[in-house]
């Protein structure tokens, strides 16, 4: 599976789907992040936008990792989704840890 752009295994396809969902969530998060600044915005979903982005990021990262390690998936789409997922997941986890250190609870 070297040199291909699109994945050919089921795990590769699922990784790509979660990668696309992650990109959509990031774009949506940006839009909602702007709305979040309004004082009387919807109460629950907007503060949790970062959490929502972490979920597809984790799925894309771990599925990509499993595909690369166990199923010889080497397509460009899988590498991209895995790296992007890993970056978003690392950023979210770092923010979570900082919050834990500062306020005694993550989030």
């Amino acid at each position: 599976m070297t040199g291909s752009v699109l994945p050919r295994s089921p795990i590769g396809r699922w990784t790509s789907v979660f990668g696309l969902v992650l990109v959509a969530a990031l774009v949506l998060g940006l839009a909602l992040g702007l709305a979040r600044r309004a004082p009387d915005g919807p109460p629950f979903m907007l503060p949790g936008a970062g959490v929502i982005e972490m979920m597809p990021a984790a799925a894309a990262f771990f599925l990509g990792l499993i595909g690369i390690l166990h199923y010889r998936e080497r397509s460009f789409a899988v590498w991209t989704a895995t790296v992007l997922g890993g970056l978003v997941l690392a950023a979210g986890t770092a923010q979570d840890l900082l919050s834990l250190i500062q306020f005694g609870t993550g989030g």
């Binding site: 959490v51 972490m54 979920m55 984790a58 771990f62 993550g106 989030g107």
Partner: peptide, 20 residues
Amino acid sequence: LRLAPTAFAAAFAAVATGLL
């Protein structure tokens, strides 16, 4: 460890890998 968002992300990844 009170890292709820990261825990939720891991749980979601568990659901995705399990379904797959």
